[in-house]
Simulated assay, not measured.
Amino acid sequence: MDPQIAHVYGTADWVVTNYSSLIEKIRSAGDALGLHIHAWRWKESLATWVVDLDQAWVNQCVRVGFESFRTSLNQTCAYHRFGDLWTSDATLALVEELGAQIDLTPEPGQRGCRADEFFADYFVDTSEMPRRPYRPSKSDFRNPDELHGRKLWIMPMSTGSTDWLPEVFRNGNGSGDSARGTIGTARARLRSTFDSMRGRYEGFLDRSDGEFIAGWAYDNSRPDAAVEVEIYDDQFLLATTPAGIFRPDLLAKGKGNGKCCFNVGVPSCLKDGRAHSIRAKVKGTSFYLNNSPRELKCRAADSPTKYATLNLSFDSWGLCRIIDRILSNSEANYLTLVVRSDVADRPDQSSNMEQTLEYLLAHPSITELAFETPAEGLHMLLLLEASSD
């Protein structure tokens, strides 16, 4: 609910008017509703929308959102999350004044915001801010101030480094590729050819660069099942990943339901300026994906490590590694997950969401987790902290 919605659809509360039965089901189930406001303004001279972070315009967007929420839902908005990785002390002061109890905007570890060039100076560095709920200082929302801070709470999004440690390092001297070394490259490739001739497996290693190792794998005998793919640097195992991300071109080519793609971020240990021989094969077989090996050569300075927010539409393999790290930290008692409402209309993002949720529901810690609204989660966290004092 903001001026952009009003401009495009006629009213800022368009979603409540047009999806009233769905909204009622959400409320009846005990789930919470909140506002996700964007400061987009139509720029006539460019005939496009731009992110306008002038505080006066931001205030107008916030007021439009809160008023539309109040009048259409007959309740005050308690939860707020500003868009485009941005917020400010003035904005938090306003949303608190308008009745918000919890703000879920900050994404710790992220630097900058998604503003247009006209507002490039509106840089927000949240790299060092807390990763647990806190009452923010009135002068700098990134700092906690329990005594003199705001009544409003900040509940940061769960984030984590996209970097990861390959299995070869986690397992001491590592796991090797039995199809190499003891058996030998030539023999392994011959066995791979036999597997291919039988027609059971197909696949291609599409990419190995400073960002991702990616490709696809398909099992003709199980057309809708995700194939497990092992990724190697020469003979050393880096990672095992399901090939279960949707790609429309693979669906069009008759590869089952099209969910047979994989996408793994490159770890920093491979960003050393040296040439690495990247290969991928179907786990438990000697079938190498076509185009294996591919050379990967990059430096850390060419592709610095990034932080990712737990957005369910993002690359599932990377998010699951972050979830593992968060849940293995005894001080991290909660996960805050994000997903856009249009994910169901984007098959690639939807398949990412399905894989991440399946992984989470099968996680060893699942019996200790509860799915809560922000207020319920905050209450539980405060109780846990009080009991540990």
Rank of each mutant, 00 (worst) to 15 (best):
54 D>M: 10
57 W>V: 14
61 C>V: 14
62 V>P: 03
63 R>Q: 07
65 G>C: 08
65 G>R: 05
65 G>D: 08
69 F>L: 07
70 R>N: 05
72 S>F: 01
77 C>P: 06
78 A>E: 13
81 R>F: 13
82 F>P: 00
83 G>V: 12
84 D>C: 12
89 D>E: 13
90 A>S: 15
90 A>Q: 14
91 T>R: 06
92 L>P: 10
94 L>K: 10
100 A>N: 14
103 D>V: 07
104 L>W: 01
105 T>A: 08
107 E>V: 02
111 R>K: 13
112 G>M: 12
113 C>E: 06
114 R>K: 12
118 F>E: 14
120 A>S: 15
121 D>W: 05
125 D>H: 04
135 R>L: 04
136 P>V: 06
137 S>D: 12
139 S>Q: 13
144 P>M: 06
144 P>K: 04
146 E>P: 05
148 H>G: 10
148 H>I: 06
152 L>D: 05
155 M>K: 02
157 M>K: 06
158 S>N: 00
159 T>V: 04
161 S>W: 01
164 W>L: 00
169 F>N: 02
169 F>V: 00
169 F>L: 05
171 N>H: 07
176 G>L: 07
177 D>Y: 04
180 R>N: 08
183 I>L: 15
186 A>K: 01
186 A>S: 02
189 R>F: 03
190 L>C: 02
191 R>C: 03
192 S>T: 05
192 S>C: 11
193 T>K: 02
193 T>W: 03
195 D>N: 08
199 G>S: 05
